[in-house]
Design a binder for these strands. Sequence first.
DNA 1: ATCTTATGCAAGCAATTACTTGCACTAAGA
DNA 2: TCTTAGTGCAAGTAATTGCTTGCATAAGAT
Lengths: 188, 188
Amino acid sequence: MPKKIDETSLFKAVIADWMARGYAGCTTRDIAKAAGVNEATLFRRYGSKAGLFARAIDHQLADVPLATLTPSDDLNADLHRLAQAYITTFKMHGDVVFRTIQEIPRYPEVREAAGNFFRNIQNMVQIFVSHQQQNRIRSEPPLLTLTAFIGPIATYLMIQNSGLNPGVPEFDVEAHIEGFLMGRGLER
Amino acid sequence: MPKKIDETSLFKAVIADWMARGYAGCTTRDIAKAAGVNEATLFRRYGSKAGLFARAIDHQLADVPLATLTPSDDLNADLHRLAQAYITTFKMHGDVVFRTIQEIPRYPEVREAAGNFFRNIQNMVQIFVSHQQQNRIRSEPPLLTLTAFIGPIATYLMIQNSGLNPGVPEFDVEAHIEGFLMGRGLER
DNA sequence: ATCTTATGCAAGCAATTACTTGCACTAAGA
DNA sequence: TCTTAGTGCAAGTAATTGCTTGCATAAGAT
């Protein structure tokens, strides 16, 4: 299959291996094999392992569901969309967000690839800022609101995905949003 | 310094390196150097890298603040203690919880070391179960409640710890607990 | 048809890594 | 005091890993 490799499936293999083993844990050999591309080609095209990862991360995180979110006037609908977008992203790429947070600071060579990642985060923050301004949710540092909403989803999916706890049910978006808006306390 | 190495500082070095680079990313050389112990000694005592990690994880997670929590009749006090215990644990060892969730399933050799880890999780779950039974918080699968409470803390600390976002303020325990109990919505 | 360019293939290189071994030494226990 | 178990040190091994190179080949552009 000469004259142009399938970059999409290559990048997919990169992300998959990255999620499975971490940056240091995965090898260019394995990635090449999984993608059906010769290892030498990887270095000719991307120069280095870091270069390959930079391109792959940047490319794969560009058209993730999280990237297309925009705030509307309907808080409930926005929360649903946001939750679903995160869940879908997680199903596509695993815990990319957390891996990025953990590893990007430690591998500066890959850091430049975080552009789309930051855009996604900023995208999510913007939604909460918008609803704060319209007095639909409590006013507080938006990062706090974001983590309050995304943190539970991310944590739940990671535990579910780890396989350590068998028979974990699907994440209940409805219940989460209600808890997020109305709280979990029963006394007043 | 012969006749017995300082196991405590050795295990501390193991955890620190693990957090910094992941299991595959950190080397026995670096750990030995950081702990002031000869590398050969590590293999004579623990047999392998995995053996060393198993012992280190099991030992270090035993007397973490999370391990001593017990439910009381005061929901608010329990939530404060839980949050503080998680934050303290994070300050001591970084995101051990997440690293464990991510990596333990992939390295079965280390899996046996997760004993104390599970005990800690179970400990946290028990607190919510207790308050659910006394009708102080909404009744739902306790894992959902746990992630709803811990998820935001963990996520916030990880982002703060990543250094990607400069000037992130301290985590506001008070605000988090209020949001957890009363919700963040302003409409009814 | 021809020239160029990207690829596959095979072999290999230098560095790293988990792990080993033999030896000298030092402290603790008898 | 003398034995002994645990350690440091230095050197080394086999395997892995990021990365390179020379060569043949198969498309795309002209």
